[in-house]
Design a binder for these strands. Structure first.
Lengths: 145, 145
DNA sequence: GTTATTAGTTGACAATGACAACTAATAATT
DNA sequence: AATTATTAGTTGTCATTGTCAACTAATAAC
């Protein structure tokens, strides 16, 4: 192992600690709303890929299918989503947000945006750009694999 | 709000999604051990600041005091930590790792290091350095406040 | 000396999540 | 075509995780 890798591991460790607290801070706020962290993740995922299947949510978010099934049942009851059995494969039930569901997600996004804004509102233009670049760089690197 | 801030918010949103999955991946591994994510965080925190008080763990990790109290009671039962009532203030019970506790934490660190290494093992020296720099830059910026 | 605050514990309970067994539909095998 | 295997999703059961409020004991503040 290279020296630079060892020191990267240390840095990642410390970043994980830092970011866990930060995510905790942001997630508290979800709780201020009606939806838990996982529910929010699922809602966002449904929004970004309409007609998604439950099994895709499981694999993308690394969640148990029984867990997802129950959350989706709840969402359906709350009229956030609708599921229609696919005509070509009756095992599949593509999920879509209702108008109400979309409104809720939009509100959630607005709220989390505000939470994030509170964190970064004091950053000047140069810092904002540099941080965004750094974040993108990190994501790119890890997604390359 | 500046344009660069708006785009930073978008980037942070996407980074949060990305990093939640990544932390999930790393945390799964903790479960392979005997300790949950929160327990691990607490153990690490105790290690890094010996003679720490329960209330400090609560504030640093943003955890409920009853929750922390129970976890610490469990740790004590498992002989991972010892608590001694402070002589100057008998309400306080400074926490320290036992020899066994330290061994366990050291093992945990070793394991998570290996998990992280698996993620970064293909990075060359230059990439490793750039990522570490980017991570440090981000932490610094958010800690400045 | 009385009241307020702080550190930590306990009880009761809700939310979160894991695992296995199940149904119904489709695909693969013979 | 009939049997077997696989897949999408649901349901039962249970353990873990986490929250909230009420409590004790010690100290600080008035």
């Amino acid at each position: 192992m290279q020296n630079s890798q060892e020191s990267l591991i240390t840095t990642i460790r410390s970043f994980n600690r830092f970011y866990t607290v930060m995510l905790g801070f942001l997630n508290q706020k979800y709780l201020g709303t009606k939806y838990s962290v996982t529910e929010t993740r699922i809602l966002f995922e449904i929004r970004s890929s309409d007609k998604v299947l439950a099994k895709d949510l499981c694999s993308k978010l690394k969640l148990d299918k029984s867990y997802v099934s129950r959350i989706l049942a709840k969402f359906e009851k709350q009229k956030l989503i609708i599921r229609k059995t696919a005509s070509n494969d009756k095992r599949q039930n593509p999920i879509a947000l209702t108008k109400f569901g979309l409104e809720q997600v939009t509100q959630l996004i607005e709220r989390t945006n505000q939470d994030i804004y509170r964190l970064i509102c004091n950053f000047d233009e140069e810092s904002s750009k540099k941080i965004a670049d750094a974040l993108c760089f990190i994501m790119d690197k890890f997604k390359e694999e």
